[in-house]
Amino acid sequence: MEPRSPVARSIGLGNYVEWFTAPSTPTVVTATLVFTVATVGGAMFLGLGLALLLDRRLVGRGFARTVAFAPYVLSGFAVGILWLFMFDPRYGLVQELLGFVGVASPQWYTQRPWPLVMVIVVYLWKNLGYVALIYLAGLQAVPKDLKDAAALDGASSARTLRSIVLPLLTPTTFFLLVTMLLSSLQSFDIIKAMTQGGPLGSTTTLMYSIYEESFVNGRAGYASAVATVLFLVLLVVTAVQMRFVQRKVHYS
């Protein structure tokens, strides 16, 4: 673990050229894209569903909320270890539960694309409660008379959701989209605990490759170039956010 080369010499943009032409780069970009889109999209979709459910006056919803949020406060690395056990091909709970419904469990550890699916599932489990809670706060800010008026007009609850609630939630959705994008692109702990980027680099995201290049392969310069690429991606996300927050999403 020594990311310093003994002698520093300038190689101009060499590291960037290398990254853009390296045979491993398409794999890394694909893994990053799949991981990011699946985790962000999945967490938003499931989180909204959970929030809509918990917005109803159900007995025990406070308990459900607590259970859903709990994983969010836990150590990502510990969560990774815990789920590695859940996914154990022989003695894991996942294969047992899949067996109950008559589905053969795939080789979660070794057979692509299942390792990537596995880390995505764990990331969703950890972050779902956060998304649901923010959406819940947004839902509770939707004026009740608007919903009542829609109901009086004979709108179905699906129609009310589509035409009234979701548009009013746009600022919340946008905030969550950006927050989740930023944290998903930087996620490291779960991947480190579960797959170490493997097998065959199939779970090596941009963030993980920065760690691997600098602290495993000892190439600090090259890794810094990759870090700059990631930083630019994150910067674009932030810039888009600031633009949109000013222009599009406003209701008052």
Binding site: L50, R56, L58, A64, V67, A70, F85, W125, G129
Partner: peptide, 26 residues
Amino acid sequence: LPVGSYLTMALATVVLGLPLVWMLLA
């Protein structure tokens, strides 16, 4: 009684909470 909602909530709670219980038991 919104039976469907209660069932969904129960299922979600079990799916989200079970790993932690399983860890403790194991």
